[in-house]
């Protein structure tokens, strides 16, 4: 039986999730990473994606997160996400809205760097949305 550690998912408006879990897969800016107990301390930014929480053998929760960062300590994982929606609650409209926003960001970008960043965000978002659609959400 694997040991558990504390996990907190926080959005600016409220504490979304809090409890002891066995494993969390986090969509990091430079690639997904799984966090188990006694992980080396680190801080990573997030890309838009799906966070998977394994609270015990059978339970598995998926949460769509966007914008923010994760702070890992040996006994604690804190994810601060600007937006956190359980995958079950996502509908097509929200996803479309997200994509539209990202597209506007690309158009509004003033210089090369911002544009590139916005484009990357958009591409990541499209990927996630496609994956979610394939899984039957939205």
């Amino acid at each position: 039986m694997a040991e558990s550690f504390r996990f907190e998912l926080v959005s600016p408006e409220r504490l979304v999730m809090s409890g002891d879990v066995r494993q969390v897969d986090v969509p990091g800016a430079e690639g997904d990473f799984g966090v188990l107990v006694n992980h080396a301390p680190m801080i990573s930014t997030l890309r838009p994606g799906v966070l998977v929480v394994f609270s015990d053998e059978r339970q598995r929760q998926e949460v769509f997160v966007r914008g923010g960062f994760a702070e890992v300590r040996p006994d604690l994982l804190t994810v601060l996400a600007e937006q956190a929606v359980p995958v079950e609650e996502i509908d097509a409209e929200t996803l479309n809205q997200e994509i539209q926003n990202a597209e506007e960001d690309v158009e509004d970008a003033k210089d090369h760097d911002t544009r590139e960043k916005a484009e990357r965000q958009l591409a990541q978002l499209r990927e996630v949305v496609a994956a979610l659609r394939a899984a039957g959400h939205g």
């Binding site: 600016p12 990091g28 430079e30 301390p41 680190m42 930014t45 600007e82």
Partner: peptide, 29 residues
């Protein structure tokens, strides 16, 4: 003291650059 031990991904500078604008929004909120 957690600060010195962290590994940063991407590096500190980039994270800071992303967090600071977000922090403005948080402060205003």
């Amino acid at each position: 003291g957690p600060t010195a031990l962290y590994e940063y991904e991407p590096d500190e500078y980039e994270i800071l650059e992303e967090l600071l604008p977000r922090n403005i929004a948080v402060q205003i909120f």
